[in-house]
Design a protein around this nucleic acid. Structure first.
Lengths: 333, 333
DNA sequence: GACGATCCCTAAAACGGTTTAGTATGGCCG
DNA sequence: CGGCCATACTAAACCGTTTTAGGGATCGTC
């Protein structure tokens, strides 16, 4: 009844069953040659004793911890709202749930973009979200030989063997810009950020190309580090644009705020679109959303990493994104 | 130059330095008696060799993994938006960042409320968010002897030795209800949920007590499992209430949607308040927010758990919440 | 010059599993 | 009956650290 002071180990199970620890290990892990009734008996005894294998010992011997790390950018300088975007949190959430399906756990590792990995977690592989140029995390993993999967294409050279999960922003931006064109924009703009990641650069490129192709004057405004997004949004609106796409929800909300303060009706006088998740229960705010489905991204990263660890060749995955016009929420579940 | 196929271990460092592995271990971990210049030399060599201690081996020997688990409820039946609320994700995010300050990592462990812990992560302790009645996770930790900290008071008996981190919802609800009283409500209501956790029960109790004290007809409506929050909100508004507090953002947004469909102006004809995080860059929607600061909660949980692991007596922490009236966002950063 | 204290270091045991190599038993076959 | 194989098990090595117990200088003291 009273549990003894020490945890029950495999030796205790072996003693209780009158067997060697090898047989117990085999019986519990479906390995080796064990008589079926012996296997069953061992399992029963282990259950009765409440045996829980020591994962550290197992990891030491097998070299596998069954822990996947996910590196989330953490800038000491910036406030919460800007560093730990809802997007990142949702990626972590999606990854955690998918990982459990594969018998793994997800360790969220805050990493400083300048200092790189600080806490040393014994993980089998790492998911790097939105790698930047000269990424210290990627370099650290490379030098330590840690398998990596990235969300977003690495910008540095020499990572061709890394599986990449990306949003289909080419298609997504196509839908956004087509929406703006149909609405009759004459002066579209992009409210972008200062981060030099693939997502930012690709979005800017797609926007510029589209403007050139349609012979429209496209304005790209970057929110500078430390600058208020609202101030940047106001500065942009003062230049007489009639449609703006925002790189994320923070910038999109800043645009809505700026539009309200200028009395510009959305989506009447001004069209606003943004990358981000539209809460199906939130009332319409006039903006259109390009939903990235970050939870699906996280799940895809886990699947890619697990496959990579199992020796599958690096394979890239593209997750579709969904365009949600203003006023139309997804069906309420 | 070419890194050999095997990782460099403490033996390699010892060999390179011409010392025993004991001395190397001591030098790197600031233990034992090592001559200062020897210590420095060992550290230099370890750095040059790129030595990274094997965490699994270290964990096996010391019995400490430096990993803290956080259990996040995961209901297979419900869709994402409802199971993995922004609140939980932010708690995880706050915990992850605080943990790194203490040299720990955070493992996000999705747990089924019915099946309990499934993945076996070698963690030193666990943060349980919003324990329910007859909580299987708490029971599992108890039987395995895993130290626990909860966010929200446990409802089961026998967990008096568990440190608890709570929101000061008594003060928060006081601010909300005082706001409604000042606005002149005659028929307040609460849109609550079906979860039997302390937060839900306490909120309902505080609301009912306040209504009784002010001699007002208070209506409490619970969103049933599987029911659409919008339908529940509409049903509530049809009963002629003039002020509603929502248990979370999903319900609050549902109320805003229902109010709009009924043409009820907020905060004119109808007052809406909700528990949730007001995005400082989001435009005003007429609702008031009671901000829980989930990231601070997560951080407080980590501090409490680390202290508990270090042998400190269980000590409860209350994190204040902030009332944000409609139309007034926090100062934009 | 014997003795103890101090300083710096080492050998070996532990941690708790998994895996390798090997062994006793019995059945089958020639 | 002897050789061979399959079955069901065991003893011991192993994973890479930390920690315990101890050992040889060097120095001061009486």
């Amino acid at each position: 009844m009273a549990t003894s002071r020490k945890r029950v180990g495999i030796r205790d199970v072996a003693a209780a069953a009158g067997l060697s620890i090898t047989t117990v290990s085999w019986a519990l892990n479906d390995k080796g040659e064990v008589a079926p009734d012996t296997r069953e008996r061992v399992r029963r005894i282990a259950r009765e004793l409440g045996y829980q294998p020591n994962q550290a010992a197992r990891a030491l011997r097998t070299g596998r911890t069954r822990i996947l790390g996910i590196a989330v950018a953490h800038r000491e300088s910036a406030p919460w709202e800007q560093t730990y975007l809802p997007y990142y949190r949702s990626v972590v959430a999606g990854a955690a749930i998918e990982a459990v399906e594969h018998g793994h756990a997800i360790a969220a590792i805050p990493v400083s973009p300048t200092r790189g990995l600080e806490v040393q977690v014994p993980c089998d592989g790492l998911i790097v979200v939105d790698p930047v140029r000269n990424d210290p995390i990627l370099a650290g993993c490379r030098s330590r030989g840690i398998p990596v999967v990235t969300d977003g294409r690495p910008l540095d050279e020499g990572y061709d063997d890394v599986p990449v999960v990306t949003n289909d922003i080419a298609a997504g931006m196509g839908a956004v810009l087509e929406h703006l064109r149909t609405a009759g924009t004459a002066h579209p703009a992009l409210l972008s950020g200062a981060e030099a990641d693939a997502y930012t650069l690709d979005t800017e490129r797609l926007f510029r190309n589209w403007c050139r192709r349609h012979d429209l004057p496209g304005t790209v405004r970057r929110v500078r580090a430390g600058e208020s997004p609202v101030a940047a949004a106001e500065a942009l609106l003062d230049r007489g644009v009639d449609a703006v796409h925002a790189l994320n929800e923070t910038y999109g909300n800043a645009l809505l705020l700026a539009a309200a303060s200028r009395g510009q009706e959305v989506p009447g006088r001004l069209r606003i679109t943004m990358m981000g998740e539209r809460d199906p229960f939130a009332p319409d705010n006039g903006a259109a959303y390009l939903s990235l489905d970050p939870a699906a991204i996280g799940a895809a990263c886990v699947r890619a990493l697990v496959a990579h660890l199992d020796g599958a060749p690096a394979e890239n995955v593209t997750v579709p994104c969904t365009f949600i016009p203003p006023g139309r929420a997804r069906p309420a579940g």
